[in-house]
Amino acid sequence: MLNFSQSQIKKIADSCALKIQNAEEGVNFFQEPYKHLFIDNFFDINLANKCFEMFPPLTDKCWEHANDADIEIKYRTNWKSELDIPDGLIDAIRILNSAEFLKAMSKKFNIEKIIPDPYFTGGGLNVTKRGGLLDVHIDGNYHDATGLNRRLNALVYINKNWHPSWGGEFGIYDDKGDVCLKKIEPLFNRLVIFDSHDKSFHGLPAPLNFPETETRKSIILYYYTKESRPQNQITVKDPHSALWKKRNLKDKSGKKTRDFY
């Protein structure tokens, strides 16, 4: 297994940051319906391959299973800190949480003072198997451990040999969540970043058609600011969890807002 030195990781982080900064308007950076970008060949190929090779199997104890048949069928890791991350993936996570990456996102998305989540609340690795889905939704807005506001989501896909017939594209929807305006294919080593707010509807509501031997794999991390979201991005002022279209824009417990600590 290839081990990366500190200087190599720094070099990859600088390269990744430059790719974000150089994302071209209308080509791989977009303002509508909410700001988003995608960048192919994002990580150094050796690092991307390492993530693929070391991605934990679903038999590993790190996974928890969401199985709500109408809105969410997938697996995600139960990381609580950086110390839970497997050796083969820690370098990638360090880069995605590095100051270089944060500064590049901040400049590109015009959001100041972005910080990562050292608690990995909801973040980490995701896996969806054949038949899995994720209903159209907006994400939660508030981080209990810090009192911060969620502002950005970043994903890196770890899927080799993906074929369009498999489905599983990342769907970007209008500000009501009614119409899918764009689908982004979950290609190996593709980065996707998008604004996270009360109008950034997204999902993959059609059940996956992946082969039984393949799964849809990704790294997904969330980023926060002390500053609140702009007023034009807020439709639910109080803290809320993910709000689902099929649940009439309520969370899994049937509520619009939730308690916070």
Score class of each variant (00 low, 15 high):
N41H: 10
D44K: 01
C180P: 06
L37A: 04
K10W: 04
I184A: 08
S81R: 03
V179P: 10
P205D: 13
D87T: 10
Q8F: 14
D14A: 14
G123V: 12
D44L: 01
S218C: 12
P86E: 04
K176P: 03
M54W: 06
S241R: 09
W63E: 04
I20C: 08
A154K: 00
P116L: 06
R258W: 02
R151V: 01
E24R: 15
K113Y: 10
E214F: 10
I90V: 14
D44C: 02
D117R: 06
W166V: 03
A17D: 11
P116C: 09
D174W: 08
K10S: 14
P57Q: 09
I39R: 08
K108M: 09
D139P: 05
I45R: 12
Y173R: 02
Q21L: 11
V136G: 10
P56Y: 10
H143E: 14
I71D: 07
I93L: 15
H36N: 13
N28L: 04
I219W: 07
G132L: 06
G132Q: 09
I219F: 14
I219E: 03
N67W: 09
E185K: 11
Y261W: 00
G177F: 11
R216H: 09
F52G: 00
D144Q: 14
C62W: 02
F30T: 03
Y261T: 00
F30W: 04
G26N: 12
F120W: 13
G122H: 04
L102D: 06
S7V: 03
D238F: 07
Q31Y: 13
F101L: 08
N97D: 11
A242I: 04
Y224R: 03
Y75E: 13
E25I: 11
L155W: 11
Y75H: 15
S15P: 07
S241W: 01
S253V: 00
D238S: 14
K61G: 03
Y119Q: 10
L96W: 04
W79L: 06
K182A: 02
L134W: 00
D84K: 07
S81L: 09
V136F: 04
S253I: 00
L47Y: 13
E185W: 03
S98I: 07
I234P: 02
L249M: 15
D87M: 08
N3T: 14
P186T: 02
F55Y: 11
P207S: 02
L148H: 11
I90G: 06
S98D: 05
D139N: 14
R150G: 08
A66F: 05
S218V: 01
N78I: 10
E72L: 08
K11S: 13
K250I: 00
E214K: 15
M105I: 07
G147H: 12
R130A: 15
H240L: 11
Y261R: 09
N189L: 01
I234Q: 00
F170W: 02
S218T: 07
I12A: 01
V136M: 02
A17C: 13
Q31C: 07
D40C: 10
Y142V: 04
V136Y: 07
E53W: 09
A66N: 12
L152P: 06
N232K: 12
